[in-house]
Design a protein around this nucleic acid. Sequence first.
DNA 1: GTACTATGTGTGATATGGACACGAAGAACG
DNA 2: CGTTCTTCGTGTCCATATCACACATAGTAC
Lengths: 241, 241
Amino acid sequence: MCDMDTKNARVSGDTPDTYDPDAFPHPSVTVDVVAFTSLEDRLCVLLVERGIWPFEGMWALPGGFVRMDEELEAAAHRELTEETGIAEAHYLEQLFTFGAIGRDPRTRVISVAYFALMPGPASECRPLPGTDAVAARWWPLDELPPLAFDHQEIIDTALARLRAKLGYTSVAYALLPEEFTLTELQTVYEVILGRTLDKRNFRKKMLSMGILDATPRQKRAGAHRPAQLYRFTRREPVFLD
Amino acid sequence: MCDMDTKNARVSGDTPDTYDPDAFPHPSVTVDVVAFTSLEDRLCVLLVERGIWPFEGMWALPGGFVRMDEELEAAAHRELTEETGIAEAHYLEQLFTFGAIGRDPRTRVISVAYFALMPGPASECRPLPGTDAVAARWWPLDELPPLAFDHQEIIDTALARLRAKLGYTSVAYALLPEEFTLTELQTVYEVILGRTLDKRNFRKKMLSMGILDATPRQKRAGAHRPAQLYRFTRREPVFLD
DNA sequence: GTACTATGTGTGATATGGACACGAAGAACG
DNA sequence: CGTTCTTCGTGTCCATATCACACATAGTAC
C-alpha cells in the first residue's frame, strides 16, 4: 500500500478508519538548504542567525516550511532566497531526509535537506536578513559556530556527498564562474577534498575527459604569465567515465 | 533558519505568526518501501494489491503513514511487516523523498522512500495480506504490473541505486543466505546488473577484496562437483577500495 | 635586463580491468 | 567399473588508468 489510508486504515493503532488529513496529529515537513561556495580558497557554508526560540542566537541552515501547493525543490529555492537574499543557486540537489524524533524541540519535524552550489566570487557574502533571521553570512567550513538542531550532521552529510560527487560528476562547474583557469579549477578540487593534487596529473585528467573548452582569450592581468581560460562544455552535471 | 516558525513567521504568505502545528494545512508524510530479493535467478520486488480507493485493484509498494512518535526507519520496517508479513529486512536504507504535488489524488503527500534487501530462498514469497491490502507477492522486476501513484518511478530510482551500490559496497550480503557459493554470488550480481560476468575475473576480484571467508565445509550435494562455501566476513555494508 | 612567479608540459613505473580455455571432481547410468 | 555429463576452479596476456616526478616559458615589477 502506499501513502495514505482511506476507508480502511491498515496502519494499526493510532490511525483512523476514514481519511481526514486533520483528524490526527501530523509530523510537519520542512526543507533545509546546505549552500556551499568557495571564497578565498576556503569552502564555505551559508548560515543564518536565529532571532527566535528555539536556539535563539545560534546559527542554522536556511530553511522552513513546505507549503501545501509548492514542490519540495521550489521550497528549497524560496527559503534560500528569502532568508539569505541569494538568488542564483547554480545547482540544487536533494540530499537526505532527517526525521529523528527529538531533532526539533517544538514538535515532530521531518526535514528534507538539499544541497546547493554557487560560484565563489559571483555569489559574494551579501546576505539579506529575513524576517526571523537576524543575520546571514558565509562561514568557512573549518570554523563553523555551534549549530542549531541537527544541522551539523546535515552539513557533514552534505560535505560527504559533495566530495563523492566531485569524483564522478562535473558538478564543480557550479562553484566556478563561467570562465576560469585550470589552476582555479584545481583549487576548487583541493579546497573541497582537503588535500593537494598534482598539477600535471590533474590537468591531464581534466582535459582528457572532454568536458572543458578552451576560450580564445587569455587570462586578464595577473602580474605573471597569463593562463588559458576554459569553460565547461555543459553547465549541468555530467557523469564521468 | 530552520524547520518551523515560531513567534515570527519568516515564511511569507500562507504561514502564521505563531507556531501552531494545526493552524494551517500540512503536507502528510508517509514511507514507502522498495524491497528487493532474488528468486529463481530473477530480481523481484515486493508489492501489495490495493483494496481501496485510490488505485483500487492496482499494485503498489508497501507503505503508509509515519506516526508522530516513530522514527522514519521504524515506520518503514513496520509497514513492511504489517503489509507483507515479512519480518527480516537484512538491509534498509533511505532512498529518496518523493513529494511532487499531484502524486497522490487525495492530498499533498510527501513520501520518504526506503529500499530493502533480503535473501532469496529465505524470504520466500509468503505474504500476509494486511488490513487494506488484498494481496501481496514478489514480482519479477521485468514483468511488473501497472503501479499506483508514482511507484514505478520510485522503483526505477531504487534499482539505479542498488546497481550503483553493488559496485562500491558489499550490500550483496543482504541478498544471500549466510553461506553461499561464488557462483551464487555471481548470479546475484548478474541478475541485478542485467548482464553476464566473466567467472574468472569475478572470482579474482571478489577474493582479492578480502571480504569473503571460505568455510571448512563443502557444498551440499548438487549432483556435480561440490562448490566451496563462503560467507561475508562482515554482514553489514562495507565500502570497497 | 634581471628577478620573480605562475603557467604549461611528458615519461616511466605500477596497478587495474578485461578477454580468454581447459582440467578436475563428483553423480548418474549402463 | 568405466563412460558421460555437468559444474567447479584456475592463470596469462594485453590495454588502460594511475601515480610520482622536474624544468622551460611568459609575462610583470623593479
